[in-house]
Write a protein that binds this DNA or RNA. Structure first.
Lengths: 208, 208
DNA sequence: TGTACATCAGTGAACGCGCGTTCACTGATGTAC
DNA sequence: TGTACATCAGTGAACGCGCGTTCACTGATGTAC
């Protein structure tokens, strides 16, 4: 299928590198960073193990780039949703998508925070730095939607929401009973998507 | 320091076994399950590697028991808080403690869900079953406190709260900037601990 | 109650496999002239 | 534009270390009589 050996053009090499990072992001999210071997990534990318070091200095370097790549889907989804229709519709779209059964079933294409959260906490400064940037962006986007939707304390609420999204998806994947797993997703979504239609009666928005 | 060799009495052996499980729970929460070697656990428990298999069949078996042990602190803390004074005070105590800087700094003695969440999602059925049990207990305890505090939809709210606790702690550990890390803990706590004093004005409790 | 012996908790070393990393090699790319 | 050669993307195999597991051994425990 794949031509053996052969030096590739610079353009092809750049494309290969990109493919390795993408594949790594997916494999890490699917199986965990520690549990994924470089050979697994390279095979999944349609290459052999030896070629890895033409593109990266170490697994750590790949991890850093893959983590950044792994955060892209969610941030982009949120940005796109907000670009479409701001405020409540965007919030609903983001929350429904994040807490969907599809997302639960497919960590590889989902959010790196829920797929790798506890592992990321132990990564080196650089990996955590790129994650921090993504978290910030996500919070900012969500906060703006809550603000547009007329929510008081929109930044606080956005932080609660992002925390709850990540926590609920993580828990629903940990939990062994499908019914409880679904309930966690459903209940969290319900509480994060209040009926904004009803006018925000009292000024100091009652949270619960 | 430690006497060499010597067969220990049955009572001592049982105590040793308990110590291994406890140590493993702490080490796993500190460094991750995959990243912790059996030799690390045994050394931390003051033993040598070879003795491990007198007590366990495999690392997997230890993981299952250590995960159960690792969930105990939070569940017990929540139960004790609720036994002390039900409702709002219990909620405040649980939330403050869970989202404290102490907890953030000391995963080893904290909640296994925030320390190991994404790794637990990939563990075998038995490990996930014991985790599920603990999640259920935690949700039940928190739900009861919200109910006593007069919160409508207390179970839904409890699920949101537990998700947010786990997510916020995980995120605050991932985030590389101390200020943002603190803000995540503070904002989430703030939103989960509303001023219940103010009478729940409207019937369908506005969530945000 | 005392004695002889089997048991087994714990030690320390070894085994074997997996994984990150290195290396010799191939042959198309790309560049110097 | 064509030719000669250095470069380097990718291959496949090997290296070495770390980790889960096994094993021979020690000597106190616990039991059979």
């Amino acid at each position: 299928m794949r031509e053996r050996s052969l030096r590739k053009s610079k353009a092809e090499a750049a494309e290969t590198r990109r493919r390795i990072v993408e594949t790594a992001a997916a494999e890490f999210k699917r199986n965990g960073i520690h549990a994924t071997a470089l050979a697994d990534v390279m095979t999944a990318a349609g290459l052999t193990q030896g070629g890895f070091y033409r593109h990266f200095d170490s697994k750590d370097q790949l991890v850093r780039e893959a983590v950044a790549e792994g955060m892209r889907p969610v941030v982009e989804f949120a940005r796109d949703a907000a670009a479409d229709r701001k405020g409540e519709p965007a919030l609903k779209k983001i929350i429904r998508s994040y807490l969907s059964r599809d997302h639960r079933r497919n960590p590889a294409s989902g959010c790196a925070l829920s797929a790798l959260g506890s592992e990321l906490a132990r990564e080196d400064a650089e990996a955590r730095r790129v994650t921090t940037k993504a978290v910030r962006e996500l919070v900012d986007i969500v906060a703006e939607q809550y603000a547009v939707a007329g929510e008081a304390g929109s930044r606080e609420q956005a932080i609660l929401a992002v925390s709850a999204l990540v926590g609920a998806m993580t828990l629903s994947r940990v939990v062994a009973e499908p019914k409880l797993a679904s309930e966690i997703l459903r209940s969290t979504a319900e509480r994060l998507m209040p009926p904004f239609e009803t006018p925000p009666a009292s000024e100091p928005a009652a949270i619960a």
